[in-house]
Computed example of a mutant assay.
Amino acid sequence: MSESPARSAPTLSGRTVLITGANGFIGRAVSARLRALGAQVRGVDLVPDLDHQVVAGDVTDPSGWSDALTGVDTVIHTAALLGGAYRLQDAWRVNVLGTSRVLSAAIDAGVGRFIHFSSIAVYGFDFPDGVDESSPTHVNGDAYTDTKINSEAVVLAAHAAGQIDVTVVRPGDVWGPESVWVRSPLAELKKPTGLPLPNGGAGIFSPVYIDNFVDGLMLIVASGEAAGEVFILSDGVGVPCREFFGHLQRMSGGTIRTLPMAIAAPLADIAGRILRAFGEQSDLCSGTMGLLNRPGTYSIEKARRVLRYEPLVTIDEGMAHVEQWARDNGLIGT
Rank of each mutant, 00 (worst) to 15 (best):
P177H: 04
T74M: 01
R305G: 14
N212V: 09
V139L: 12
E152V: 10
T145H: 07
L156V: 06
S252W: 11
G14R: 03
A68Q: 03
W65F: 06
R273Q: 15
S13W: 02
I164R: 02
L88C: 07
A303V: 08
S104A: 07
L248G: 08
G162Q: 10
L259R: 14
G124E: 01
G236D: 08
R93L: 05
A121E: 09
A265Q: 15
V44K: 04
V174Q: 00
L97C: 05
E317H: 08
D211I: 00
R276K: 14
L195R: 05
D165S: 12
L284Q: 10
S66A: 15
L331S: 14
V75H: 00
L189T: 08
V30S: 03
I26A: 04
V322Y: 06
A68W: 00
T193H: 04
I19K: 04
A32F: 10
D51K: 08
R101W: 06
Y298M: 14
G200F: 12
H247L: 11
W175L: 04
A80V: 05
V59Y: 00
G224M: 09
A143L: 10
W92C: 01
V168I: 03
L312A: 14
G83N: 07
D235Y: 10
A277V: 10
T78D: 02
V230D: 08
I115R: 02
Y209W: 02
G83P: 08
V96Q: 03
M289N: 06
D129E: 14
S2E: 10
A158I: 12
P48F: 04
T16S: 08
A32H: 08
R250I: 06
W175R: 01
E152Q: 11
S4Y: 07
G333C: 14
T288I: 11
A6L: 12
E317C: 12
A79V: 03
G84K: 00
S179A: 12
F117Y: 07
A39D: 05
P240R: 15
P207I: 01
S63C: 06
D126E: 13
D67F: 03
L34W: 02
Q53N: 11
I149A: 09
S63L: 11
V131E: 05
E323Q: 15
I210M: 00
T297W: 11
V180P: 01
A226D: 03
G236Y: 11
G14W: 03
D45I: 08
T16H: 05
F213N: 04
T16L: 00
A222H: 07
R7C: 04
P295M: 08
P62N: 03
G254Q: 12
A271V: 15
P62H: 05
M1Q: 09
H77Q: 07
D45W: 09
